[in-house]
Design a protein around this nucleic acid. Structure first.
Lengths: 211, 211
DNA sequence: GTCTATAGAAGGATAGAC
DNA sequence: GTCTATCCTTCTATAGAC
């Protein structure tokens, strides 16, 4: 599917509209008509450029899966002390999701409904490589925290949980925050979370050290 | 919708089948035909008992929302020291989700796709009451950990994240565990997590204390 | 490349017999 | 209460003109 410059304009409009609609409605509820409308073109053109709803979805899904993981990998692959990485991660990850609030749910629920999509697209993500780089660059610090190779997956999932879950469950959290009558809204909650989460993780690791 | 005993048999079969199918496929992808097949009855009967796909879904959704939250509330409303609650929570919550692995995703994604469903059904969940009970029973301990009223939502979301997110993202985690070539499978991972998570939380709180 | 018109299939819902 | 048959709408996908 090589495209020349004149095609790009339309193809991009379609892609962007599809991204918005799929993320908002999910694959099954998304309508080709709505994507066409938002792109400002005709329904038939969608098929001209992307052949089918499935193909269009796959294109969007792959892109967004990449967005999701490269954000995480970027920080942890970098060349900082572990505590710096934690701080940078929460700062950047939460800021990123503030601009892409539906992304966590989109990825997780589409995978849950259709795990084959993951298998098709996930080969590029080099998770073992991430672990090796972090172990090489921060292994000594982590050893002081009593995090060995077999605790690494637990720690990573823990770190990620603290940002991804609140966005995935944001509609519930919004209701809860109202319900307890604090003036905090969701955005403030997530902003405060940048420091709360990184303190929480580092406090735990530093205490673990002394066991 | 009061029902006599003879109705109950069939109505329950339908409800159980619907629960399974909705959780597996999501509202939009679920088919009335498949629900009927699994219940071992005819499609028309679904409408006789539940009027429409929407009504049937609402019944299932309300039940499952209750299951989800009562599990959390049960532990934290109880009468134990906070550290005991944490341990009991991770033990019970993870065991529960091992039997209901699709529940977290089901709740979160259906709410994300259709937040009105939440508004309709969420009024029963007394979140402020939960906070007040915990504050009353464990307030002193939490004060020692430097958790005041405004940190309470952050702490609760943190605690819950650590169990709910891994189940919601389980298909991704399964791939990651394979990828790093550890012999751990997802079930073992979650079993180990019962103690990892409670240690992680308590280590953090106890260190926070000394700041 | 872009549009209009329409084919064709799927799926929720109901009518009506038993 | 339960079934068969069928209606009717919705939506993806394509044919064909410009």
């Amino acid at each position: 599917m090589v495209k020349n410059e004149s095609e790009k304009q339309t193809e991009e409009k379609i892609f962007d509209a599809a991204m918005a609609v799929f993320e908002e409605k999910g694959f099954a509820t998304a309508r080709m008509q709505e994507i066409a409308d938002r792109a400002g073109i005709n329904k038939a053109l969608l098929h001209y450029y992307f052949r089918s709803k499935d193909h269009l979805f796959d294109a969007v899904f792959e892109k967004r899966l990449g967005d999701m993981f490269s954000k995480i990998f970027g920080v942890f692959m970098s060349d900082k002390p572990f505590e710096e990485k934690i701080k940078a991660y929460y700062e950047e990850h939460i800021s990123f999701f503030e601009k892409n609030p539906r992304l966590p749910n989109f990825i997780m629920s589409e995978i849950a409904l259709n795990p084959q999509r993951l298998a098709k697209r996930f080969s590029k993500i080099d998770y073992a490589g991430l672990r090796d780089v972090v172990m090489e660059k921060n292994g000594k610090e982590l050893a002081e925290y009593n995090i060995g190779k077999e605790d690494w997956p637990q720690l990573m999932i823990t770190i990620i949980s603290l940002t991804v879950f609140p966005f995935a469950a944001q509609e519930i959290i919004k209701v809860l925050l109202q319900r307890i009558g604090q003036e905090t809204d969701f955005n403030q909650f997530m902003n405060y979370r940048k420091t709360f989460a990184s303190d929480f993780v580092m406090n735990s690791l530093k205490n673990r050290k002394k066991i």
